[in-house]
Write a protein that binds this DNA or RNA. Structure first.
Length: 725
DNA sequence: GGTAAACACCTTTTT
DNA sequence: GGTGTTTACC
């Protein structure tokens, strides 16, 4: 293969980035500008032109999906195997390093990765056993605190409480948490990154080895890196200038979970010889959509600066619909969807995007009643399901009995007579003696500290785990799992409980056996013939990649998801719904300029998902948390230029005050509609105040409290009402 | 030890 | 209003 195959499919800016000399490169890639393409072609360039062998290439992404896609595209482009290339998520690669150098990382060989659910259980338990007032120190907050510290690279021993009792308590929990994880051989997500950083930092030889090895480092979605991830990258590339990062400061929407948009700015100081390449040509959207996005995002300050353009032409204007309430909003959206389908469009080209998951409901209902197939993204993924986590906990305990998180989870699941009292006793002792629950349980049995009934139950449980542990080595994994769900009583338990959701649980457990049978160990095993068992590989996979949320995604259906999960995707027809202050931007962001700017970036992400048509909708009244609210239209709507927008009139006759043309401004501020509190006049009943409204179109009715005539319901279409005040 | 009533809460989410 | 969690009671 020659250079042309790598270079020809690229535009000038992309070419500049791909063929840039060996130095630190920052590619500012706008939405839809061919970001992944540049990354893939850069790697191809390095291999073909600079003759860098695959094992010297590192590529880091944030999601497993992105990593898979990149691997696939490199293989397609170069027609080679990428097995020896390190392509993965920050967490996945960190995990790989830690497995290979467990000893130097001061980790047990059999350490297991725990997810945030396990983590929160541990923190909750610590709060209990340490007798901490959970109203002052909510476990959630403690968990957040621990993760935030780790993401900044800070260990408990580095922190001083400055005599502040609140700090001191948080610190005490952090310390106790660290000790417990150490003792249980458990590593949380943030710990993976922190350990991997410390591993390289504290082992000069290892660091030199990997610096030598990763002659080219590539990073996707650089704007989403947090402090420890960036520190790790710097460690690997310091002095080598072999860092190629791609990102978009305007699409940084994960600040709330530690992503540091500053990294993109700091990059320029840290790598003085760097080169910046901007990808501004957009291949996705029409001119109107891009103009809206550009104008909106220009309201943010401290940007790197970037303006998307296209040769695709202006296209359809963006449509703005003011709905009466949330049902009307759903009704409108689904009508437009049906029209699209009737015109021969694909359902899978349509996305409904919302700020928060709770908003999906009314759209689901409407889609359901009109029999339009849809798929909601988000929610529980396969390995996150309760029954799956329970089954996995048995396996984890069998692999490592000191895993306290798993012990807690299943010691009495299904119930086998080991109650809260016995457990409290065990927790207290375990903490006192700095031993695992497993050891404590054994000790208590030996010393006959328990009632005969509890002792019998506990002994039975321990025996079960030991038996499973013995089978780990010489049983095929799927047989082992089959044995687990049977002999633990889990399968029996879910089969007997006659609830509809349990049927699915039984199915999921069977699916777990199947997943183990089909699991491809070869693709995930360590390159240097590590001693990691199949079981441990499978368990890590379950923690690091929780799997899809729904089984059969490849159907032609409408896509429903949050704006966050829409990042990186594109759809011909996009609805951004609930464009109201307090919803989007969210209530919590309204009074904080930094958060508001992140919301604006989120809006930018949403707009730029649309290829052909974009609908923005907001409702004048919305039931929120059981109460009626009358939100103002989102401030973002005012930041979109009017000449890209087209207002869609409401379906039925709306009584408007004579002479008041419904301009964009009045529609945006909700003028023209009757809402509670509005003073009205009626030729027969006189003056009154609107109490509530219901129905839509010519069915719309208004309840009015007339000063003299009392409370009456009036049909808007017939009653000649006049707005006052 | 299991169930039901009371209660608080209420973005966004990947690893 | 709906959900997940704690508490009270059988």
């Amino acid at each position: 293969m020659d250079v042309s195959a790598i270079i020809n499919p690229l535009n000038d800016a992309q070419r500049l980035a791909v063929s840039a000399p060996q130095q630190a490169i920052l590619v500012l890639a706008g939405a839809g500008s061919g970001k992944t393409r540049v990354l893939v072609h850069r790697i191809a360039w390095q291999m073909r032109i600079n003759h860098i062998p695959p094992q010297n290439i590192l590529a880091v992404t944030f999601t497993n999906k992105a990593a898979r896609e990149m691997r696939g595209r490199i293989e397609d482009l170069l027609n080679i195997s990428t097995r020896s290339m390190w392509i993965g998520t920050f967490h996945g690669l960190a995990h790989r390093l830690l497995r290979q150098h467990a000893k130097q990382a001061r980790l047990p060989e059999t350490f297991q990765v725990m997810d945030s659910d396990d983590q929160s259980r541990i923190v909750k338990r610590l709060v209990k056993t340490m007798n901490i007032d959970d109203s002052k120190w909510p476990p959630k907050q403690l968990q957040w605190y621990i993760n935030a510290q780790k993401e900044e690279g800070v260990r408990a021993r580095h922190i001083s409480d400055h005599g502040d009792p609140y700090q001191r308590q948080m610190l005490a929990v952090y310390k106790a948490y660290e000790e417990l994880c150490e003792r249980s051989g458990l590593v949380d997500f943030a710990e993976l990154l922190l350990r991997a950083h410390e591993l390289l930092r504290d082992n000069r030889e290892l660091l030199d080895f990997y610096r030598e090895r990763f002659r080219q480092v590539h990073v996707d979605e650089f704007q989403d890196t947090n402090s420890i991830q960036y520190a790790w990258l710097r460690l690997l590339t310091d002095g080598n200038n072999n860092l190629f990062v791609v990102g978009d400061d305007d699409q940084s929407i994960y600040g709330w979970r530690g992503a540091k948009i500053e990294n993109i700015f700091n990059f320029r100081q840290h790598y003085p010889d760097h080169q910046v390449v901007r990808l501004e040509r957009n291949y996705r959207s029409t001119g109107h959509i891009l103009k809206a996005a550009n104008t909106l995002i220009a309201h943010n300050d401290s940007r790197m600066g970037k303006e998307l353009w296209t040769e695709a032409g202006e296209g359809e204007p963006i449509s703005l619909y003011t709905a009466f309430n949330e049902q009307d909003e759903a009704y409108f959206v689904v009508e437009k969807i049906r029209q699209w389908i009737k015109d021969g469009g694909l359902r899978s080209d349509i996305a409904i995007l919302y700020r928060s998951n709770a908003q999906s409901r009314q759209f689901e209902e409407r889609l359901m009643t009109t029999a339009v197939p849809y798929r909601v993204y988000g929610g529980l993924r396969f390995f996150d399901r309760l029954e799956i986590k329970n089954a996995l906990a048995y396996l984890r305990l069998a692999s490592n009995p000191h895993d306290d998180a798993s012990f807690e989870r299943i010691v009495n699941t299904p119930t086998r007579g080991i109650g809260a009292k016995t457990l409290d006793e065990m927790r207290g002792q375990a903490r006192q003696q700095q031993r695992s629950l497993w050891q404590t349980a054994q000790g208590m049995l030996e010393q006959r500290l328990l009632s005969p009934r509890a002792a019998g139950a506990l002994q039975g449980f321990l025996n079960l785990i030991v038996r499973l542990g013995q089978n780990c080595a010489d049983m095929a994994l799927h047989d082992l799992i089959q044995q687990v769900i049977e002999s633990s009583g889990l399968l029996e338990f879910y089969k007997n409980e006659k609830q509809d959701r349990n049927e699915a649980r039984v199915e999921n457990l069977e699916e777990l056996v199947n997943a183990a049978r089909l699991f491809d160990f070869d693709s995930l095993s360590q390159e240097d013939g590590e001693t990691v068992s199949e079981l441990d590989i499978f368990l890590t996979h379950a923690a690091l990649e929780a799997g899809e949320s729904q089984a059969e995604p490849e159907q032609d259906c409408v896509q429903l998801m949050t704006l966050h999960s829409a990042k990186g995707l594109e759809f011909k027809l996009v609805f951004m719904v609930g464009m109201e202050d307090g919803l989007f931007p969210s209530l919590q962001s309204l009074d904080d300029i930094g958060r508001l700017q992140e919301e604006r970036r989120l809006c930018y992400v949403g707009i730029t998902r649309a290829m052909q048509q974009l609908f923005l909708t907001h409702a004048e009244s919305r039931r929120l948390y059981g109460k009626d609210s009358y939100p103002r239209p989102s401030r973002f709507l005012r930041e979109i230029p009017a000449d890209t927008l087209q207002e869609i009139r409401m379906r039925a006759s709306i009584t408007r005050t004579p002479g008041m043309e419904p301009t964009r401004q009045t529609a945006l501020s909700g003028g023209g509609r009757y809402r509670p509190g509005q003073s009205v006049g009626h030729e027969k009943f006189g003056e009154g105040v609107v109490l509530q409204t219901e129905g839509e179109g010519d069915q719309e009715r208004v309840q009015i409290n007339f000063r003299h005539a009392g409370i009456k319901w009036l049909m808007l279409a017939y009653a000649k009402l006049e707005m006052l005040g």
